[in-house]
Design a protein around this nucleic acid. Structure first.
Lengths: 220, 220
DNA sequence: ACTCAATCTTGAACACGTTCAAAACATCTC
DNA sequence: GAGATGTTTTGAACGTGTTCAAGATTGAGT
């Protein structure tokens, strides 16, 4: 049966993620994973070309969970600030079990060659899924976001989310209290800042920001 | 003579930085450095406790050079947008020779345990030097920046600079053209955005942003 | 039942960053 | 100078991620 192969793959992934959570990234050596799974090191490499790919597995799983939890949390919130908070808080929630290992994760993810790099090709699917969450947060909000912002905003918010994640990694306060505080403070501010787009002088600056973003983006 | 010791240390650093530039980070193994320098591996470790510390050496040198070049470039520019451009462009200039290895550098720098981490304790001096550049850019500008912003702005700009550096690392356009474009577009925007602080409705949002920054910061 | 190709599994081997006991060298004290 | 004390240097060794030739297992076709 073809299921046998998939079974081994799943076993490796499960053992690896469990060890990531319980003993951290560095202590989760490929040898330790193999031993815990009762297979050889080479066999683990047959399914995952590198330790990075195991991290990618984790990344995908976390994103999937975020999508589910965020969608649930968005159900009962209308205003943009609240919706932003919901998405960001749930994002932190699903990552929480991996906080101690967050910095290793980010160090892995940040190199362009890594399959886990959130900007890279290998994680297009996961990034799209994550973007979709922010798109839903923006589109479903009422009062509605200014039309001209609606297109680019989700991507910018996603970018800001990457920043929040980075902050969270460095956050050593208990339970990452400071990150929660940052989210609670920043979300209403963003919403309020965006509502300024109506003011003529401000509107122009907004236009230029969007112009710059598009300009720098398309020229990739 | 005590100079002999310092000489070996300098030799290791010089060889390492040269190899970083010429063959990249990964190919610059500790063994290769030692061989090129004509010493043993263990001896290199006598002076640098880890490969990370050699990266730190590079970081410090780049920052020092940035301070010099930026100060020069700031001499003939008055307006904030121009001064920001000057600081950012010179920053990219001094990093340029290391672009190919930038991602490894960032991956190293981003883990909290690393001595090179720009937010960490081990690089307090280098960070202060970098912050001083931005402080000088803000303070020397005319027309002057709104008083209430002057205190926190340098730090925020420095943070933005970290973002620009990150963008630069990922920038694969020839000569990192896109990063230059980003700087040229963003600097005037920031300056113009700040000038909006006078508008009543906007002013309040600014106050809240500053309040949030301070709140999240002091609670470290 | 037998073959043979595809798939899966193994464990030894490689280069890497890092450590450390011991050797070599330098400097000071008498 | 001889010995003692501190500084510098060595190279073998460890554990890591990763590779790969070789062996074991599976499954389809006859």
């Amino acid at each position: 049966m073809a299921a046998k192969s998939e079974q081994t793959r799943q076993l490796v992934a499960d053992v690896a993620l469990k060890m990531f959570r319980e003993v951290g990234f560095e202590k989760t050596t490929m040898r330790a994973i193999a031993q815990e799974a009762g297979i050889s090191v080479g066999n683990a490499y047959y399914y995952f070309a590198s330790k990075d790919e195991l991290v990618q597995e984790l990344y995908i799983q976390v994103q999937d969970e975020h999508a589910v939890v965020a969608a649930q949390a968005l159900k009962n919130v209308q205003d943009l600030a609240g919706r932003l908070k919901a998405v960001l808080h749930t994002g932190i929630d699903v990552m929480a079990p991996y906080h101690q290992f967050g910095s290793d994760f980010i160090a892995t993810a940040i190199r362009p060659s890594s399959p886990v790099n959130p900007f890279g090709e290998a994680s297009t699917a996961a990034r799209e899924a994550s973007l979709a969450i922010f798109r839903s947060a923006v589109e479903g909000s009422s009062p509605a976001v200014a039309k001209k912002l609606r297109g680019d905003l989700p991507e910018l918010l996603w970018l800001a989310y990457m920043g929040v994640a980075l902050f969270w990694v460095y956050d050593q306060s208990e339970g990452q209290r400071r990150t929660r505080k940052l989210i609670d403070g920043a979300a209403p501010l963003v919403a309020r800042g965006l509502s300024l787009a109506k003011i003529p002088g401000v509107s122009k600056v907004f236009d230029d920001v969007l112009g710059l973003v598009r300009n720098v983006k398309e020229d990739a």
